[in-house]
Nucleic acid binder design. Structure first.
Length: 395
DNA sequence: GAGATCACG
DNA sequence: ACGTACGTGATCTCG
C-alpha cells in the first residue's frame, strides 16, 4: 500500500485550491468588517478577545487552560447573536480543507511516481489499529458536502480500472453483541434489522413525542456510547440541549434492561482487567491497563472505559488485518490501496469487478468468525473516484 | 513544543 | 463533589 501509493487528480486539486483561496479571502475580509478590526482569524486567543471582550458575547465554556473556548461547539451556540459567528464557522471549515487537505495532498504527491504514498504504522495505536501518517489518508473528509469534494480527487491509476471499497457494516456493535452474547442484539443482527432503529423502538416505545429520525439519532448515540464506556454526562454532552443528566441515566438504564448481557459483559471486562492487568482481543492481543487500580477516581474511570472499548475496537482491528492477509494471497494482482479501520479500498479492472468483489466480500466476511453466530456484513461500492461510489449488489 | 482546533473510524 | 465516551494525525499560534 505504501509503495504503490494512491493516484490523486492534481489538476482537480489545484482548481479546488484556487476556489478556496478566493472564498477564504472574501470570508476574512467579511470577518474583519463585521468585527471592526483586522486580526488573525487563526488565533483562538485573538478571536476570543474580539468575540467575548469587544463584542461582549457570552463565554460558553473555558478550555483546560482557562481560555474561553472558540471551537465549533462554542461558536454554534452563538450563531444567532452576531453575524460574525457564521462567517467564522465557514472560514474554519474552508481553511481546514484548503491547508490540511488540498495543499497537504498536493505537497505529498511524489515527484517521480505522481502518487501519494502514506506511511502506515502497525505499532502506534494501543488497540491494534493501523495509523496513517505523512499524509494521513485515514481521515480524508466525508461528513460535510464541502469536505466530500476532496474525495473526488482520489482516482484509479489505470485506464479501464475503477476504485472498489469494501466496508464492514456496524462491525464494532456486532463484536459487542458477539463478545457479550446478548440475545436481543444477536437476534437483531441475525434478522438483518437496523440496530439503531431497533434500539430506538425499545428505548422510546411507540408513543413518544419524538420523530422516528430523532429517536434513531439518539439510539445511535447511545449504541456508540456503549462501545466507548458510556457515562450519563458524556451522553448529555453528545446529545446536546434538552436532556438532563437524570434523563440520560434513565436512557442508559433502559438500554441495559433490553441488553442485559451487555451490562454483564462490561462488568466482566472491568473485573478481568483488575485481576490480570490487561484487556485482550478475540485473537488474544493484549493491552495492559495499569491505571485500573489507581487511587485516583478519574484515572480509574478512564481505565475502565479502556477495558470496555479495547476488546471491541481491537477485535475489529484483528479481523480486518486477517482479511487483508488472506486477500493479498488470494488476489495477488489486485492492488490494495488503503485501509481505513473498517474499510478496504482497492483498484480493480472494470471487466472483472463482479468476480473480484465476490472474493473480497467472502474473505472479509469469513476472516474472523464471531462467537454466538453473529453474522458479518460487508458492503461493496464501486466508482470512478472515492466520492462517486455506487453500491454493488452481489446475489 | 504545548495547546487549541478539527479531520476520520 | 468530581471530570467525563474509544482510537488516531495535521495545522496553526504563541511563549
Amino acid at each position: 500500500m505504501e509503495i504503490r501509493g494512491v493516484k490523486v487528480d492534481v489538476r482537480y486539486l489545484k482548481e479546488l485550491n484556487l476556489l478556496y483561496e478566493a472564498k477564504l479571502r472574501d470570508l476574512e475580509e467579511e470577518a474583519h468588517k463585521l468585527s471592526g478590526e483586522s486580526f488573525n482569524l487563526n488565533s483562538p486567543k485573538q478571536l476570543a478577545e474580539v468575540l467575548f471582550n469587544k463584542l461582549g458575547l457570552p463565554v460558553q465554556r473555558k478550555t483546560p487552560t482557562g481560555q474561553p473556548a472558540t471551537d465549533e461547539e462554542a461558536l454554534s451556540a452563538l450563531v444567532d447573536q452576531h453575524p460574525l459567528v457564521e462567517v467564522l464557522l465557514r472560514y474554519r471549515e474552508l481553511y481546514k480543507l484548503r491547508y490540511t487537505y488540498v495543499e497537504g495532498l498536493l505537497q505529498s504527491v511524489h515527484p517521480r511516481t505522481g502518487r501519494v504514498h502514506t506511511t502506515f504504522h502497525q505499532a502506534v495505536a494501543a488497540t491494534g489499529r493501523l495509523s496513517s501518517q505523512s499524509p494521513n489518508l485515514q481521515n480524508i473528509p466525508i461528513r460535510t458536502e464541502e469536505g466530500k469534494r476532496l474525495r473526488k480527487a482520489f482516482v484509479a491509476s489505470r485506464e479501464g480500472w475503477v476504485l472498489l471499497s469494501a466496508d464492514y457494516s456496524q462491525i464494532e456493535l456486532r463484536i459487542a453483541a458477539a463478545l457479550s452474547g446478548d440475545p436481543h442484539m444477536i437476534a437483531d443482527f441475525q434478522a438483518g434489522r437496523d440496530i439503531h432503529t431497533s434500539t430506538a423502538q425499545y428505548l422510546f416505545g411507540p408513543v413518544s413525542p419524538l420523530s422516528e429520525s430523532e429517536k434513531r439519532r439518539i439510539a445511535k448515540t447511545v449504541n456508540f456510547g456503549i462501545i466507548y464506556g458510556i457515562t450519563a454526562h458524556g451522553l448529555v454532552q453528545r446529545l446536546g440541549g434538552g436532556l438532563s443528566r437524570t434523563e440520560a441515566q434513565k436512557l442508559i438504564d433502559t438500554y441495559f434492561m433490553r441488553y442485559p448481557a451487555i451490562k454483564s459483559y462490561i462488568e466482566r471486562q472491568i473485573e478481568q482487567v483488575r485481576k490480570c492487568g490487561y484487556a485482550e482481543t478475540l485473537l488474544g492481543r493484549r493491552r495492559y491497563i495499569p491505571q485500573i487500580n489507581s487511587s485516583n477516581k478519574v484515572q480509574r474511570a478512564e481505565a475502565e472505559r479502556l477495558a470496555i472499548n479495547t476488546p471491541i475496537q481491537g477485535t475489529a482491528a484483528d479481523m480486518i488485518k486477517v482479511a487483508m492477509i488472506r486477500l493479498h494471497k488470494r488476489l495477488p494482482d489486485i492492488p490494495l490501496l488503503l485501509q481505513i479501520h473498517d474499510e478496504l479500498l482497492w483498484e480493480v479492472p472494470e471487466s472483472e469487478i463482479e468476480s473480484i468483489a465476490r472474493i473480497i466480500q467472502e474473505e472479509m466476511v469469513e476472516a474472523l468468525p464471531l462467537p454466538n453466530q453473529v453474522p458479518i456484513e460487508v458492503e461493496i461500492k464501486v466508482g470512478e473516484n472515492w466520492l462517486e461510489m455506487a453500491p454493488l449488489s452481489l446475489s
